[in-house]
Lab assay of single mutants.
Amino acid sequence: MAAGGDHGSPDSYRSPLASRYASPEMCFVFSDRYKFRTWRQLWLWLAEAEQTLGLPITDEQIQEMKSNLENIDFKMAAEEEKRLRHDVMAHVHTFGHCCPKAAGIIHLGATSCYVGDNTDLIILRNALDLLLPKLARVISRLADFAKERASLPTLGFTHFQPAQLTTVGKRCCLWIQDLCMDLQNLKRVRDDLRFRGVKGTTGTQASFLQLFEGDDHKVEQLDKMVTEKAGFKRAFIITGQTYTRKVDIEVLSVLASLGASVHKICTDIRLLANLKEMEEPFEKQQIGSSAMPYKRNPMRSERCCSLARHLMTLVMDPLQTASVQWFERTLDDSANRRICLAEAFLTADTILNTLQNISEGLVVYPKVIERRIRQELPFMATENIIMAMVKAGGSRQDCHEKIRVLSQQAASVVKQEGGDNDLIERIQVDAYFSPIHSQLDHLLDPSSFTGRASQQVQRFLEEEVYPLLKPYESVMKVKAELCL
């Protein structure tokens, strides 16, 4: 049975990233139509530049190519590739079939990587351009969430054990800070992308030097003109047959890092959902379990974690691919890159769409948070109580021993009897502590235990987050809708 299948058929496997999760716009960027249309555009740009620099290419040939950029006979191309065992030459023939007058000058002087690699770089750039505003929107939604809850005390956790208090907004800023680093890295790697350009079979530009009869300047002009037509500021000066596969490492490393950030955020949300302090959106008709109707599973956060793990592992592909590119190139890269580049971007696209949807509907339960604080705060307040007693004339050592005994009794009630923490009640009825009984409410005010959390939130948002989001103001209103 021949390899390949009808990918629109229910009898043929289709990647869930495309069929179930990723956005239509990201799927289109990695589609065959987008790819092969870009090949034709690159052939047109090459012909236009070659004509401008004096090669015998007519206006009629150029116009014929322009008129057929979208006229792609995919069936013919597939048949040609089956016959020739070469995808680029299959599309040269297919393009030439609908451009008979231009057929002889299509791909003039070029090698397969002229269309293959340059198209990949265009796709990487455009895919990054799709991700950047999506990530900015996630940051914006979380920034709104953090600002609104900047002063809401909550129990902090280290080692997932109760620690000092923080605020809900401050905790959210930990998430935002990681995503801001990801946004900066995505922008950097996007701006650092260079075009492969017009380089020939081993990167020496020998074929173009021959076409222009040894004119170095025209060869350099050709490279520059096509690079500018493709919208790049610069091209690699040095290439082998391909652009260095280190570029793929750079791009997928940034995406993998984004995956790590999203995994951490969504894990926190899942843990908070278990504590009943916070939940992701839950639709009115949504079913959490087929057997347990009360369940409210954090399905979206779980999906993000599941896909983020996949995204983090994909960076190993370009690392290994770059390491086995012998001399000017081997074909070890080809099949692998067809999979890992598309999957990385479709996965990143999915987790950003999902995280935006989550961040637009996060639900906080202040009463649950308050109750958990009441359970733990008495123990945390013991040092403040000791200091207040010393100020009232008591002995630190005597007070410490009193607190120690009462704390152990209260802990026994919590752990052995399943009761509430009654340390404060014990202190309130103990005559030894009568000098500070009137101060206990103040000493137990949760806001006095959150330090500068709310001020940190305000400063972080104003100095770091809002300036970073400013270039994306025009796209901030787009909502994230999930079908599944």
Rank of each mutant, 00 (worst) to 15 (best):
L135I: 09
M89C: 02
P435F: 13
R270W: 14
L42P: 02
A47F: 10
V475T: 05
D87G: 04
A335Y: 12
S306R: 10
A22R: 10
P293D: 06
M225F: 10
R37S: 06
K66R: 06
E464Q: 14
A90T: 14
I105Y: 00
R196M: 06
I427G: 02
D87S: 00
H217I: 14
L53T: 03
G419S: 01
K295L: 03
I386C: 15
L484P: 06
A78L: 10
I139G: 04
H437R: 05
S9D: 10
L341S: 05
K391S: 08
T158R: 09
K101Q: 07
G4R: 08
Q439F: 05
Y21C: 12
D420P: 12
F433L: 10
H7F: 15
I57N: 05
L142G: 09
L346C: 02
S290G: 09
D215A: 07
I106N: 05
L275P: 10
D349H: 04
S151T: 08
Q61F: 03
E464A: 07
K134G: 06
E220S: 04
T58L: 07
V413Y: 11
E81D: 13
A206N: 03
E462W: 12
Q63E: 09
L165W: 15
R337K: 05
T52A: 04
V315E: 07
R303P: 09
V315Q: 06
V189C: 10
D178T: 07
W43T: 09
P471N: 08
A392N: 15
T244H: 00
A342L: 03
A146D: 00
A348G: 09
L84Y: 11
M76V: 10
P298K: 14
M312H: 02
Q63C: 09
C27G: 03
K66G: 01
D445W: 00
S67D: 10
T239R: 06
Y432E: 01
C304F: 13
G288Q: 02
Q205A: 08
C483T: 06
D215E: 06
Q241Y: 13
Y294T: 09
S323F: 13
V364K: 13
R296D: 15
A163G: 07
A2T: 11
Q320D: 03
L209F: 12
R33M: 10
T313F: 03
V405H: 00
Q221M: 15
L165E: 01
N118S: 02
A143T: 05
L275W: 05
T58M: 06
V364E: 11
E64P: 02
I57D: 13
S447N: 05
V219Y: 14
S12K: 15
T52D: 07
Y34P: 15
V219F: 15
C304D: 02
F195L: 04
Q51P: 03
A47P: 13
Y294C: 11
S407D: 09
V262C: 13
P378R: 10
P162N: 04
R83F: 03
K75Y: 13
G109Q: 03
S407E: 15
L183C: 02
C180E: 14
M65S: 09
S447Q: 00
L53Y: 04
F232L: 13
R196G: 09
T94F: 05
P56W: 02
H159F: 01
I436K: 03
L46F: 11
E343H: 11
V364Q: 00
I358A: 13
D117H: 04
A163S: 03
A2N: 15
Y13P: 15
E473A: 05
S151M: 04
Q285E: 08
M89P: 13
F74K: 15
M316A: 04
V88L: 15
V247W: 11
S395A: 10
E462V: 15
G214C: 00
H97E: 11
S9F: 14
T227L: 04
P378A: 06
Y13A: 12
S23P: 06
A49N: 11
W39C: 14
G109C: 13
L135V: 12
F236M: 07
G116L: 04
E462S: 15
S323L: 00
N336A: 11
A127M: 05
V413F: 01
A410V: 08
D192M: 10
L311R: 11
G394C: 09
